[in-house]
Amino acid sequence: MSFFHDMEVNPFLLNGLLAGLLASFCCGMIGPYVITRRIVFLSGSIAHMAFGGIGAGIYLAASREGATREMVRQGALWGALIAAVLGALLICLIAQRARERLDTLIGALWAIGMSIGILLLKYTDGYYADAMSYLFGSIVYVPDQQINFMIVIALVILLTVLLMHKRILAVCIDEQQAQLQGIRVGVVNLILLILVAMVVVSLMQVVGLILVLALLTLPAATAGHHVTRMVPMMVIACLLCILLTTGPRIAVYGTRIGPEGATVLAAGAVYLLSLGLKNPIARLLGRVRGRWGRA
């Protein structure tokens, strides 16, 4: 296959695969929380806040003297991370203090983040194409620094989940009971949103900010069709994400089909298929389990 042949000569292709694996891990861990907590669109608005941060990062980095392309890339990455985390903070703060309808708030921040990004990019000559690669993803060219950045994000997510899974799950199940158990629900919510912000930033290279929601939620939701506990859901979501970020890309390599769009379409197809086949698969699993039980 030409993909594997080219991988030997072009290290960026390998980086692309690595980026996919790291993003898969992050998505698989956080996605189940996102759908259980019903914060899919909140995550979407954080993604669009991140785009505002990309605009600001590129603008600030490019306006400095002697700015290199690499510096601008770094600026975009940090801008995205900072804006996404700030977005998470802002949502928590406004939702708790101002008692605004969450739905309205999500819409407002979604649009504001997007327009800040577009405005600032218009002011920055020569980087419009770069910005588009964040919106729609560009898995073909992934530099080493970005891989390091994603490794750090994946580690932070792993550590936080290992430390806090019980607490996050409790808040997902029953906020009031969690509070009675001495859990600070507001803090857990904030941490969850910050994790989402990190996943969004780590995913933007793989599928782009606009399609982040697909990888964050579809594999987790697909897993949720077939298992009824959080940890198996995470494991299946991780595996599905890995399949979805590698398979379609290798399949469309060398054709004119963009790998990012193909990834998301595949995720959507798998989700819809799983939704349709939920009952047959459940029966099949039940039969297999029954046979094992008797043996």
């Binding site: 899974h165 019980k166 001495g182």
Partner: peptide
């Protein structure tokens, strides 16, 4: 969940 307040940090 009813034991959460008594249990230490950690995933399990």
């Amino acid at each position: 969940m009813g034991r959460l307040g008594l249990s230490a940090w950690g995933a399990w």
